[in-house]
């Protein structure tokens, strides 16, 4: 791995399949450090599988995925947790931990946890139990937890899928704030039309037909939709 491509996420010849059915075949993807990056595509195209694989949370059947020059599938879970944080599409519904306890799992600094909670405007929730929060509130807590993990990369899998419009807007504002502070955010989303109009995107990648194609991040999202339809 050369110095030039060490500060980026690099997926080379990636195969992802379930049984005999390929979701991605010899897919290529390159994401530089910094900013907000989107993975878009239709339902079942393989966005979530690719995102989980890039975070090292799902094995791949061929190729290699390197994060800042390190193979994500060769790292231990503890090593990976220092490089990548992940926000799943479904917030936890059965956990009865208090919000401050969840944040405490990601950071031993209570001051830093309080700071991030304040940044998300959620200080009132610190004593709330997770199963008492709405899906939108729980998802924001999970994002705050990911930020507290203090990793250079945060991957999010359709994090606004369960949120209403005001909650989505608030969520994306936090995402932009975190990206501005230097964390690289990669997310799979169907919410790209709202995002494309509201924030500057570093890159957009279309997952379709077992491959990944880079799109013009400054282009109109309607154009992306047309590409998606084929």
């Amino acid at each position: 791995m050369t110095e030039a491509n060490s500060q980026r996420l690099e997926a080379k010849d990636v195969d992802i399949r379930y049984g005999a059915e390929f979701v991605l075949r010899t897919a290529q993807l390159s994401i530089p450090v910094g900013g907000l990056h989107l993975l878009i595509g239709r339902n079942g195209a393989g966005k979530s599988s690719l995102l989980r694989s890039m975070a090292g949370l799902q094995p791949i059947q061929g190729g290699v995925i390197a994060l800042n020059g390190h193979n994500v599938h060769s790292m231990s879970a503890a090593e990976r947790a220092k490089r990548v944080a992940f926000v799943a599409s479904t917030p936890p519904r059965t956990s009865q931990l208090r919000v401050e306890e969840v944040l405490g799992l990601a950071s031993s600094s209570t001051a830093r946890a309080a700071e991030v909670l304040a940044m998300f405007g959620e200080t009132a929730w610190a004593q709330q139990r997770m199963d008492a929060l709405s899906d939108g509130q729980a998802q924001r807590v999970m994002f705050a937890r990911a930020v507290l993990q203090e990793t250079p990369w945060i991957f999010m899998d359709e994090p606004t899928a369960f949120l209403d419009v005001p909650s989505r807007k608030a969520f994306w504002k936090h995402a932009v704030d975190v990206a501005v502070q230097g964390t690289t955010i990669v997310l799979a989303t169907h919410d790209y039309e709202h995002l494309a109009g509201a924030v500057k995107l570093a890159s957009v990648h279309l997952v379709a037909a077992q491959s990944v194609k880079a799109l013009d991040p400054s282009g109109p999202p309607q154009g992306w939709t047309e590409r998606m339809q084929g």
Partner: peptide
Amino acid sequence: TLGPLTAQSMGVN
């Protein structure tokens, strides 16, 4: 308790 994916991403084997 936060889910298998989240636990794994936080360093749990």
